[in-house]
């Protein structure tokens, strides 16, 4: 099998790599989705004057951004069971990656909210809108548009980092690649193809991000 020519070999492993890629994309979408949900509230908390919101959100961001995702992943998958909490691999990965992404997205939202001119909030408040109404109807919609490029970058980063989930037995792209490698010993070819599969997703995405950035700098 291992002296099979490259293209037939590639065709034979492609279905497996395709499934792995789907898993990678699924993992990333769910994780960043959780991240965005956390990030909206985290971002609001980070710009709050209330210590009860500001301090916990800041501590969260600093802890998550200051520790490796791999450690966070292991804590959820290998650490929690010793506290009596057993989670399946996929759930563990999505929780760890979602909480991780949430910290970065929190900072993205914080920046987006702070980039909206103060006058927008003042005008809204002067009309009788509460702080939260002003956030919801005035500040966040404008902030959201501005943070689309950094959110795209976060998605790209998370897509690559999701390869770490291969260490907790999730059959995503990286894991599938390594399994094929250990079966066929054609490490270089297989891993190169795996890397190219990541690139095939990230490259168009980063082009879209750059395009939106350029368009926004013109319209603003």
């Amino acid at each position: 099998m291992s002296d099979e020519p490259f293209f037939p070999f590639l065709m034979s492993i492609m279905p497996h790599l395709g499934k792995g890629t789907l898993m990678t994309v699924e993992l990333t979408i769910i994780s960043v989705g959780i991240g965005v949900l956390i990030g909206i509230f985290g971002g609001i908390a980070r710009v709050s004057k209330r210590p009860l919101l500001f301090i916990p959100s800041t501590v969260y961001v600093e802890i998550i951004r200051g520790t490796p995702l791999l450690a966070q992943l292991f804590i959820v998958y290998f650490g929690l069971p010793s506290l009596g909490i057993n989670l399946p691999p996929f759930t563990s990965a999505v929780i760890a990656m979602g909480i991780n992404s949430g910290a970065y997205v929190t900072e993205i939202f914080r920046g987006g909210i702070q980039s909206i001119e103060r006058g927008q909030m003042e005008a809204a408040r002067s009309l009788g809108l509460s702080y939260l109404q002003a956030m919801r109807y005035i500040i966040l919609p404008q902030a959201f548009k501005r943070i689309l490029p950094p959110l795209g970058n976060e998605f790209i980063a998370m897509l690559k980092d999701s390869s770490l989930a291969s260490t907790i037995a999730i059959a995503e792209l990286m894991r599938v690649g390594r399994e094929i490698t250990s079966r066929t010993f054609r490490s270089f070819e297989v891993l190169a193809v795996v890397a190219l599969m990541y690139l095939a997703i990230t490259l168009p995405l980063s082009l879209i991000v750059r395009y939106t950035e350029r368009r926004m700098s013109v319209s603003d």
Binding site: E117, E122, A123, A124, G128, L129, I138, Q142
Partner: peptide
């Protein structure tokens, strides 16, 4: 504040809303 209207030097219209929505937002939501 509902009963005290304010007009600003820097105008501060809501940039993401059209003219009609700028004017109707507060009466509807507040």
């Amino acid at each position: 504040r509902e009963r005290i209207g304010m007009v600003f030097q820097h105008i501060n219209l809501f940039n993401h809303l059209n003219v009609l929505d700028n004017v109707t937002l507060a009466p509807v939501k507040v």
